[in-house]
Design a protein around this nucleic acid. Structure first.
Lengths: 228, 228
DNA sequence: CGACAGATTGACGCGCCTCAAGGTACGTGG
DNA sequence: CCACGTACCTTGAGGCGCGTCAATCTGTCG
């Protein structure tokens, strides 16, 4: 949170006093369903989750993915009806906190309110990049871009990436995030591997040539607003 | 703004005291370029604008469109580097206001801060719906959905829609917003016209069968969070 | 009147989807 | 221990939705 705004000691003390209700969910289960009335938010403690929406035919679109430390659905403190599902990508542990509590916190601590605001704004910026990604880039570029975002956000958490990293997504999930079918994702992953951008095996990923991957994915991390 | 949060008299007074710097921009000109350092936000007074991003090949993706009353790029008070262009769709008049001013306002008036927050959250919800739209829907559905959103947001402003409404977008712009080419947008518009969903001519649109259009576009306005 | 932006339509091609048939790894129960 | 089911990955063949290219038409503005 200190990454998002300069907080005072009192702010940090207030944050430290927050009570989280921990919960662990199995992979592919819902934490929240679209249309639910929700009055709490959560923070990812361990594992991976995503936000997704369905079309009538039943196809799924993942609209963002989330990892340790991400604040999820801050919006439910102000917008009680969920406009998307919250789904576990892997087994995931989250900490729940009442929206009301966060609102009070924000009212008493303007710098915390500002940090929440900044978090939401970055979240929105990522969504805009995703619109661009699925709307105007070809399949190989989309997949490469998504992997670049994953690796970069992981690095921003301070997780090193020279070694092979575990890739939590199935090919179906990558397809759901990029607007492709799992079959075509498989072909694009193979192409990227054969071009020497990365090596990947059973849920593992080893970046072989970051500059190449970044170029193929047209990846510019500016939209993550992580200059700090 | 009263639509977003319950404001007190002092809040409304503070808002009324804001000084806006008006500016009028011609259609297709930029208000802000991606990468610019920006320290002000704006509100649309008249006309239509959009946020858009470009891919390397030069193709454009519109990531949201905006009309009278929309607050644009509130984010620039906290994130100084623009992650997208702000472009005039038609000739458009906006009112500029310093990000610093908005921050101070938010710090002094928690309910206004909350209203800003809510506005941003709704904006983000719309982006997520767009990811779904371009990622998983077919061309006719996408175009219908975009028109549904346009009509609905216009109605939420209190602009009646029984009569033919002016449609500010060119077919190229509809394509840029839906991830299609102008040629294919033309064919989809014709299909929707022939199915009796709407009639449209030179920048005009007359909804003939809202239920049909809504069904084709799989449009559910919940994501606009306008229950108020 | 010419220049230009936008709309319209047709012919054709390609990128991605669909369908299908395995293959591999792993867990579970007999 | 093997038999079986399940989830995921892999690869091929064929088809379709949308893109590309190009020509024409319209309205508007100088």
């Amino acid at each position: 949170m200190n990454r998002l705004a300069k907080l005072g000691d009192d702010d940090n003390y207030a944050l430290a006093c927050l009570q989280f209700l921990p919960e662990t969910i199995r992979a592919n289960r819902y934490l929240v369903r679209e249309g639910d009335r929700v009055d709490r938010c959560c923070i990812v403690v361990e594992g991976y989750a995503c936000r997704d929406k369905l079309v009538r035919k039943g196809e799924r679109q993942i609209v963002s993915f989330h990892m340790r430390g991400d604040l999820l659905d801050l919006q439910h403190s102000l917008l009680p009806i969920a406009d998307h599902n919250l789904t576990a990508i892997t087994d995931v542990t989250v900490g729940w906190i009442a929206g009301e509590t966060l609102l009070e916190l924000a009212q008493k601590h303007p710098r915390i309110a500002q940090a929440f605001m900044k978090d939401s704004l970055i979240d929105a910026s990522i969504s805009r990049e995703w619109v661009l990604n699925v709307g105007r880039r070809d399949a190989k570029t989309r997949v490469a871009h998504m992997i670049c975002e994953f690796v970069t956000r992981r690095q921003n958490l301070g997780i090193a990436s020279e070694a092979p990293v575990s890739l939590p997504f199935t090919q179906q999930q990558i397809g759901d995030a990029t607007g492709l079918t799992a079959v075509h994702v498989n072909r694009m992953l193979r192409a990227l591997r054969e071009e020497g951008a990365f090596d990947h095996g059973d849920r593992f990923l080893k970046i072989a040539d970051w500059q190449k991957l970044r170029a193929i994915g047209e990846f510019n991390p500016a939209y993550l607003h992580q200059a700090a």
